[in-house]
Amino acid sequence: MAEEFEPKIVAFLCKWCSSAGSDLAGVSRMEYPPNVVPITVMCSGSISPLYILSAFNKGADGVLVSGCHPGDCHYIKGNLYARRRIALVKELLEFIGFEPKRFQMSWVSAAEGSKYTQIIKDFVSQLKPLGPQTELRRNL
């Protein structure tokens, strides 16, 4: 029997909330799928659309962008800028016909380890039936 497809997820987590949230999930020994590659950035507002695209380009099956809840940003308003920018990226990805389920954004605070594990679990189960992402993968 062929092995089940395991999606690869790139998660851009902000240092102050989401990354701490994922850390909490870890130290609390909560279980979640090992498909995710976390990349800690200083703020969700620092995530350029190019990072997201580049992740897909280099073979990610799904991309997650996660930041602090509105009002909790360490830099006061970085996540609100991110919200606007990511909304545009999402709309444009959908417009050109890219599978919208492959790209997600979430707010995860430092105390929400369980929310983080739930998001990853749901994301992985969403991506499994879609199969590998080939649309944007670098193909020279």
Binding site: L50, R137, R138, N139, L140
Partner: peptide, 24 residues
Amino acid sequence: KWVEKSPVLSENFVYHFIRAIHLA
């Protein structure tokens, strides 16, 4: 190197997408 220079679909895609986003 964010984007390769080769005119293949995947790279064209990144180029045009990022150009569109920059012009938003």
